[in-house]
Amino acid sequence: MLAKLMESGNKKIADMAVNTNFRSYRFRNDRIFFQNASLRDKKILGLITKQTGKEIMRMEVYDCKQKTDLAGATLLWDTKNNQKITSLAGKNVIKGGKASWDFYWQLFGRNSIDNKGLLIKQYIHYDKGMDNAYWDGRRMVYGDGDGTVFTSFTSDIDVIGHELTHGVTENEANLNYENQAGALNESFSDIFGIMIKQRFNNQDVKKSDWLIGEKVLIGPKYALRSMKAPGTAYINHPELGTDPQPATMDKYQNLPNTSSGDWGGVHINSGIPNFAFYVAAYNMGGYAWDKAGRIWYAVLTDKTLVQNANFADVKNLTIVHAEKLYGINSPEAIAVKQGWTEAKV
């Protein structure tokens, strides 16, 4: 089909077909190269920084027994003893924690949250009917949900990856948790959370639904966020109404920097950089973590990324790193630019 189009009498069609063929060829070969590249090759290319093959994950899971006293929580499981557990939430966080650690280690040579082998601590069954999960600077904490609108916040691997990534961000750029920097902080968590899920499920950019927390929010039509179409994760939900996330900068919401204003809309305006990432990754094709993920990780760990960075700063850095990793005018650099253009940043 493509060969026929390349020989088309219509110059425009022929040009487009040749261009498409060239890009497909590059994508195929890049993917084969990265699949076959040895750890040493990846290290030389700067794609892996510290992996030595010696580090192992360390994790502990605690049961809060529906109370809010974290210091009084009971140890349920740890990597050293690998206790047999029956709790579904416990199994979920072990699975999600392992998938997150593997993701950062196997792809980027990152040894845990702080890249120094930090013990991953996860607390489940926090409070009675708590419909939330959070990172408090030292650990991840999950509620069971109210059982009506939300189920356990351990139900989705992307939510677990999201929380763990807050720890990674805190140890890297430490983006302020307010306004655009806060929305970027949230967006990095969603971006790495979705890739952790995609990798765990072996999903490429086309197979993935790009939904965050589709099990946590009860109901087959609902999820907590959509990276593919921000603002559509839930529509006319009987309790929550409609997802308030914008996908583009012209719909950016100026909200008060208070808790009730979501610290300037950190979970709302994150839809904009989320959408930019989705478009970039989708246009690159294949697995999101192979190229787009590598670019965004390079930005997250870039020492020039300042704590009060705005969307334009991250846009510029993603372009710089895409060009550095894949070349100026490479399909990857073009895809990154397309992402931010679509998001109107």
Partner: peptide
């Protein structure tokens, strides 16, 4: 300080 990420607050 720093703020809890995804934290919830009571008033």
């Amino acid at each position: 300080s720093p703020r809890i990420k995804d934290g919830s607050y009571y008033e």
